[in-house]
Structures are given as C-alpha cells and as structure tokens.
C-alpha cells in the first residue's frame, strides 16, 4: 500500500512540474501595448553641419603639410546638434536637440524613440534642422495617417532620399 502511495506521489510530482513548466512557458500573456493604441517609431542617424565652416587653405599652408596629407580645405570636426520636432495633431510630441556622437562630436546625431499614440486618423508633422540657421527647419514633412490599433508607423530620415520617410 505504502509503495502505491509513493508511486502516486511521484506521479503527482511530475504532473505538477510538467504543468508548471507548460503553463509558464507562455502564460500569463504580457500586454506590451495597450488596446486601442498604436506606435510611432522615430529613428534616424544623421550628421548635421559642422560647427565651423570648412576653409580653403592657402598655398603656403598646403606646402607646410606633409606630402601625403595635402588637401585644398580644412574642416573642424565638431558638428552642431540636430534639432528634431514631431507634432501630432498640432501638439508637440517630441522635441530634441540631438548631439553629434563620437568623442570629437563628429559623428551622426541619432535617435530612436517609440511613441505610443491612440489609433485613428492623425496629422503628423516632422521637422528637422541640421544647419546653423537660427530659426526654422531645413526639412519638414506632413502626413495624414489613419493608424490602426497596434500599427507601427516608422519615421526615418535620409537626407539623400529627400528627407523624412514614413513607412
């Protein structure tokens, strides 16, 4: 009798462990994005203008340089920050001055932002300034979109391709 009780106990133990593993291998469900919401993902890597403009070297300056380093212009490495704004239905959703990356701040400024917004029709305006102009923006794009629940709208920026890209 005692032996059968032990077998029953062993069976119950394995049943319990199997149920534990089976359940927690994919339950309970985790809700990453609330119902009725969508996501705008703004991400790009872009190099702004240099802080100090490139300057033409004089012939004397060029002559002083080692033969393998002679070039017509000299440029400071540091870049100015990129100013980015994202507006949703007239409201400012994201506004940032993105510093250039790199130890000498000569790399591209970059951002990666996830913004959770209600699904539905929206007007999205994206603006970017990458020059030393005091006001206004160098790039601006406006889109009318209807976001479905859980939709992911990616906004990228590629200066070579004309600016903002909505995907």
């Amino acid at each position: 009798m005692r032996r059968y009780l032990r077998y029953t106990g062993q069976f119950a133990f394995f049943l319990l462990i199997a149920a534990f593993i089976g359940y927690f291998s994919n339950q309970p469900v985790y809700q990453q994005t609330p119902d009725g919401m969508a996501q705008i993902k703004l991400s790009f890597a872009h190099g702004a203008a240099r802080k100090v403009d490139c300057r033409k070297l004089s012939s004397k300056e060029i002559a002083r340089l080692p033969a393998n380093e002679r070039r017509p212009n000299t440029c400071a490495r540091e870049r100015i920050p990129v100013h980015i704004q994202l507006m949703l239905d007239g409201e400012l959703l994201y506004d940032a001055q993105l510093q250039a990356t790199g130890l000498s701040q000569d790399g591209p400024a970059r951002t990666y932002r996830k913004l959770i917004v209600p699904a539905g029709p929206h007007t999205i305006v994206a603006r970017l300034r990458d020059t030393k102009r005091g006001s206004g923006f160098d790039y601006e794009a406006e889109r009318q979109v209807t976001l479905k629940p859980f939709q992911n709208l990616a906004i990228d920026f590629k200066a070579d391709s004309g600016g903002f890209q909505f995907r």
């Binding site: 593993i21 927690f24 291998s25 994919n26 339950q27 469900v29 985790y30 809700q31 990453q32 994005t33 119902d35 969508a38 996501q39 629940p149 859980f150 939709q151 992911n152 990616a154």
Partner: peptide
Amino acid sequence: DLAVVPGKVGLDWFYLPLFPALE
C-alpha cells in the same frame, strides 16, 4: 510583422521575466 507592434505576447517566464522591465 514589423508593421505591427506585438501588442499581447505570450512570454516564456523562465527566460524572459525581466523583459518587461528592460522595456
């Protein structure tokens, strides 16, 4: 589908219990 956020996702809680916190 990268055009859609995962929304509700069944996590393996043995390996991924910290993922919601990381996020």
